[in-house]
Computed example of a mutant assay.
Amino acid sequence: MSTRQTTLLGILFFFQLFSINFVSAQDAMTIYKEYKNNIAEIVVKNDMDVEVMRGTAIYATDNMFMTNAHVIKGGSQATILVGDERYNVVSAELSRNQDLALVIIDTKGKDLPLKSFKYSFDVDVGQDVYVISNPVGFNQSITDGIISSIRGNIIQHTAAVSPGSSGGALFSKSGELIGIITSRHRDETSMGFGLSIEAISHELNNESGFFSLFEEAPLLRGKAIIGMSHADDGSTVQIDLFDPASVKKEGSYLRYNGGARVISYENEEVSRFAEFEFESFFDCKNKTDKSLYTRVHGPNKSEVLFEFGESDEWLPVKDKYKATLNAYCESTVTNNQLYYSLRELHSYITTIMPIELLRKEETVNTQGGANRLLQYILKHSN
């Protein structure tokens, strides 16, 4: 039960509680009609315009929606379908601690025909719940169940959910939003899990709890981030990149493309920028590689600072590349299929990388979205 309950006296408390529940209880049809348009489809793509995820996003406030971090963190662009209109996502903030993301769409000046949710922190095992989400592409589907357990911040429930339901809305019987769907048991569609609204509220109150994702997407340019390191000065960072689509197997060797970006900041401004591109051979047996060519570009992409051709020397491979290249050496799947597994690695690195160092000013500015939603939730929760 919520810690925010008000203590009242004896029978008066019982009578008021009974009356409130009786008056505010709604059936599935009423909840669905009232809020179905708030349940949107989100489609996420990478820099190569390949779809990597499809899920659910729910209306938060203004032009902001909530979804799961795992829905969007593997991509660099996204769209949200509201009614018959598809809108581009222009900003995405990911929680560092919870499977939560806030996305902002460009409405091009249009007012969204959506109704604000009422929120509740009050949840109890055994209470009836409803889920509206987009399971396996069947948009705005409603299922029902009960809360079967409360596991810290997570509400376990029996309403059926499937892939695509991630980010969907979990309602109480009174039509209040009590959580967003995060996952389900692998083998049980009726064993779902949702992040509670109370946990979301706490996370939104964490000033450093979010980082910006899509502002960093240009750093990827179709390549997966597989590592990052800092110089001793604390203001220079190197991001190591790998291009999954470039891999070609030639006998016991791999030919692949990679690269790196080196960025330095001084007084919040970029003081140095360089981009490395290279093609290499990897020896699957000896776990060494040699460079076929390397180019270094300056801030102006068309300007080549220097380049050099094939090297005869085979060198040990950095650990961050070795695991990835070994997967290609041992795998029989297609590059496209393997790209999706590499996306998980890329997503993990993206999640933990200190975005503030790369986009200090923008990171501070994105906090406005989290704070705005927090104030709204607190105002509309009981």
Rank of each mutant, 00 (worst) to 15 (best):
D283F: 00
N286Y: 05
K290Q: 02
K290M: 01
S291Y: 00
L292H: 07
G298F: 11
G298Y: 13
N300D: 12
N300H: 07
K301W: 09
S302V: 11
S302Q: 10
S302H: 11
E307D: 09
E310H: 10
D312R: 10
W314I: 08
W314N: 06
L315M: 07
L315I: 07
L315T: 11
V317Q: 04
V317P: 00
K318L: 15
K320W: 10
K320V: 02
Y321A: 01
T324W: 02
L325Q: 02
A327Y: 07
A327D: 13
Y328L: 08
Y328P: 14
C329N: 01
T332H: 12
T334M: 03
T334F: 04
N335E: 12
N336P: 03
L338D: 05
Y339H: 03
R343A: 03
R343Q: 00
H346C: 00
S347N: 10
Y348M: 14
I349Q: 03
T350H: 08
T350Y: 08
I352H: 12
I355P: 04
E356G: 13
K360E: 08
T363L: 02
V364S: 07
T366R: 09
Q367I: 04
Q367F: 05
G369H: 02
A370N: 08
N371V: 04
Q375Y: 03
Y376V: 05
